[in-house]
Simulated assay, not measured.
Amino acid sequence: MTDNRPPLIDRSAARPADSGPAMPYTQGTHDALVAAQAVSRPSAQQAGPESDRHASVTAAHLMLAILAETGSTATRAFTDQGLRLGRARMRVAALTLPPPDRVERADGPLTAIDVVLAEARSDAARRRHRAVGTGHLLIALTAPHALADELTGLGLDVSAAVRFVCATYAATPPRPRDTGREFA
Rank of each mutant, 00 (worst) to 15 (best):
D3T: 00
N4D: 09
R5W: 04
P6R: 09
P6K: 07
P6A: 06
L8A: 05
D10N: 08
D10Q: 03
R11A: 14
S12M: 09
A13P: 03
A14L: 13
R15K: 13
P16A: 15
P16M: 10
A17W: 11
D18M: 12
D18T: 15
S19A: 15
P24I: 02
Y25L: 15
Q27T: 02
Q27K: 06
Q27M: 05
D31Y: 10
V34E: 02
A35R: 11
A36I: 06
Q37S: 08
A38H: 00
S43G: 14
S43Q: 10
Q45V: 15
A47P: 09
P49Y: 09
D52A: 11
D52K: 14
S56R: 13
A65Q: 06
A65S: 11
A65K: 09
A68C: 06
E69F: 08
T70H: 13
T73E: 08
R76I: 12
T79R: 01
R84F: 09
R84L: 12
L85V: 01
G86M: 06
R87A: 11
A88Y: 03
A93I: 00
A94D: 08
T96E: 01
P98K: 00
P98H: 02
P99C: 01
P100A: 10
D101P: 04
V103Y: 13
P109N: 05
P109M: 02
P109H: 05
T111W: 00
A112N: 15
A118F: 06
E119M: 14
R121G: 09
R121W: 03
A131R: 01
A131L: 00
G133M: 02
G135Y: 07
H136I: 13
L137I: 07
L137N: 06
A140F: 01
A143G: 08
L147H: 13
E150N: 10
L151G: 06
L151W: 06
G153A: 07
G153R: 00
L156C: 03
D157V: 05
D157G: 12
V158Y: 11
A161G: 04
R163L: 13
R163W: 08
T172W: 09
P174Q: 07
T179C: 05
T179L: 10
T179I: 04
G180R: 12
G180V: 03
F183M: 07
